[in-house]
Write a protein that binds this DNA or RNA. Structure first.
Lengths: 153, 153
DNA sequence: TATTGTTATACTCTATAACTATA
DNA sequence: TATAGTTATAGAGTATAACAATA
């Protein structure tokens, strides 16, 4: 059992590394920075959001988030638009050009998923990957919260 | 079919994002930088290597690789040792302290894998994750090579 | 000649902190 | 008072290029 767990941990570690290498490749292929392509991924995955929420999601400070969205706008990848009721907030959405990056990079991800399981099992695999992502996010949140507590102590 | 593919692509994208957030959390929890923890992951996953191979793996320049290994040595995480036959090369290996980071961060990964599939299917899941990682790496290599060609043209 | 690694310089990106506007 | 976002400054990390040592 423990042996299988170690194998599973190793497989997830290698997938995370492969994801980071993919991220660099996407950045090089599109001429964008690492953080820009992460923001694009985050926006398409979780939808339009305010800069603050985007910053928290990517682990950035508010100042870095302002600079990030500045770069995205300058490159025509995303754009700011006002929050309908809260005039403090600025929401961010992908432009057509940003969606094009999503489509191209999505094709490259599809290549990584080709033939790993029979088509009939692809739906179940997707559910499994999503569950792992959710539990990994939960674990990250748990650890980040623990650090905050120790800081206050 | 195409619909399932889009779902699968979305699930992989979210897992890659979760992996990047996990990376940041590990860096914060250990007091190391992002690149340092990537190097640790790479060394434990693919074994000891020369600085050049490590640099290629992480997408770094040779100068950045020197600075990286300098930092790892200063923090007691890894150490240089001479290649047995090629005196140009310097190999890098994790110290006991580096292995401790591997163990701690491995526990956090284990938490993400808990209960996603029955124990009897964990071995098969590990194989699937490893295959996805390999194919994603292949795709990254293919794209990087394509860029090199276009540069020469 | 090609490869591995080091050094020096400039640049990009981010954190911090002080600030404005709105809730 | 608290929150969202901007700006200015300083610092960390990287790419580039020139270099030394070895294959």
């Amino acid at each position: 059992m423990a042996e299988i767990d170690q194998t599973a941990i190793r497989s997830l570690r290698s997938l995370i590394l492969a994801g980071e290498r993919y991220r660099q490749t996407v950045a090089e292929q599109t001429g964008l920075g690492i953080t820009e392509t992460q923001a694009i991924s985050s926006l398409i995955t979780y939808g339009d959001r305010g800069q603050h929420e985007l910053a928290v999601d990517l682990g950035l400070s508010s100042g870095a988030s302002t600079a990030l969205v500045d770069r995205l706008e300058r490159q025509g990848i995303a754009e700011r638009y006002p929050h309908p009721t809260d005039r403090r907030r600025t929401l961010v959405r992908l432009t057509e050009q940003g969606l094009d990056v999503v489509r191209r990079s999505g094709d490259w991800l599809a290549a990584a998923l080709r033939d790993v399981v029979p088509p009939s099992e692809m739906g179940r695999l997707a559910e499994t990957l999503t569950t792992i992502a959710e539990q990994l996010n939960q674990e990250s949140s748990r650890l980040a919260a623990k650090e905050d507590v120790s800081r206050e102590a």
